[in-house]
């Protein structure tokens, strides 16, 4: 009899492990049918509900930082399009100030490269940068992983999500990536107009026309970005000395190029530009307008648009139709309360 129990016990454990893997539920992101295919290969690496849930918990947990004070959400707040408003340059651990304005986290599955300079080439390895940066979370994986493995809650959550006993860096990075891949904004007024559900006002329609004539080259519909890198003629900040994409490629053609940000939810993601130098859309449009005094440095690259003050108001009215409150207040994206 005792022998049978000894044989049966391991079998139950084995079934238990099998069940952990089987409990993983595949999910898919939803987006309009006229959108391009995401850059992320969901066929090869599908999303799983349990991994997304785990990634969301990690995203909001300051355990990722060295002093348990800074979470991803510290600089990427859901209500403000997952960016850090009110600060030109985002701040991290011990009130350190970084050198760039935290970018929005919107429709990341369509991006090929990440960060303002494209230094990160895959969303799965993106989290390494803020976790390890001295001015962001000031941590490293070698310190963080034992902390997670000895945690009261995380070992079980990781096991449910990945079916393995030990928490590894690959699992941590995948979980964070999976949550961020679900951050899809496709329910703005613009989208509803495109779907034939709503109509633009006359002012918005005029703004849309101006947008298509002047902005669509870089902020291309429907994502409102080409996801490429451009030099928009901003005078380089003498203190920050940020040469942008050049820092990654070391090619002179990439000097002062930064990633074209999406304009979706632009109403909420102020301040603007990679260094947060402009506080409102009026200032941004003034930068691009022909009647502004050109910068001494870098002016040859400046895209110039010719619009009147009146047209500027219409263009801004259109940009506000890119706000997606269903995205900003999506209960699946906010702080996990249970």
């Amino acid at each position: 009899m005792n022998r049978w129990i000894l044989i049966l016990l391991p079998s139950i454990f084995l079934f238990g492990f099998g069940a952990a893997e089987l409990s993983q539920t595949k999910i898919e992101i939803k987006y309009p049918s006229n959108w391009p295919k995401p850059n992320y290969d969901f066929e090869k690496k599908p999303l799983y509900k349990e991994r997304v849930k785990l990634g969301r918990k990690l995203f909001y947990d300051p355990i990722l930082s060295r002093n348990d004070m800074v979470s991803c959400a510290s600089c990427h707040l859901s209500f403000t399009a997952f960016t850090h408003v009110d600060h030109a340059l985002s701040h991290g651990i011990n009130d350190s100030i970084g050198t760039r304005n935290a970018p929005v986290l919107i429709n990341l599955a369509w991006n090929k490269l990440f960060m303002w300079d494209g230094a990160v080439n895959n969303i799965e390895v993106q989290a390494l940068a803020p976790i390890s940066h001295a001015s962001e979370m000031g941590n490293d994986l070698v310190t963080l992983l034992p902390k997670l493995n000895e945690h009261d809650v995380y070992p079980a959550l990781f096991k449910t999500a990945f079916g393995e006993e030990k928490i590894t860096s690959k699992q941590l990075l995948l979980a964070l990536a999976q949550f961020q891949l679900t951050l899809v904004s496709a329910n703005s007024k613009y989208d509803k107009v495109k779907a034939g559900v709503l109509k633009f006002t006359e002012q918005e329609a005029n703004g849309y026309k101006l947008f298509q004539q002047n902005c669509n080259g870089c902020h291309k519909e429907p994502l409102f970005t080409t996801t490429e890198f451009e030099n928009n003629g901003l005078q380089p900040d003498a203190n920050l000395r940020d040469s942008g994409r050049y820092q990654v490629t070391r090619m002179s053609k990439d000097l002062f190029k930064f990633k074209v940000p999406t304009l979706r939810n632009i109403q909420y993601s102020f301040p603007y530009m990679h260094d947060g130098r402009y506080n409102n859309l009026n200032e941004v449009l003034n930068h691009y307008r022909a009647d502004q005094e050109l910068n001494v440095i870098n002016q040859q690259n400046k895209p110039v648009i010719q619009i009147t003050e009146h047209e500027k108001v219409d263009l801004i009215a259109f940009l506000l139709t890119l706000s997606d409150r269903e995205f900003l207040f999506n209960p699946d994206y906010g702080f996990p309360r249970n």
Binding site: L128, L141, T168, L173
Partner: peptide, 9 residues
Amino acid sequence: GAYGGDLDP
């Protein structure tokens, strides 16, 4: 993307 084993970051 992210790897484990000898390629673990």
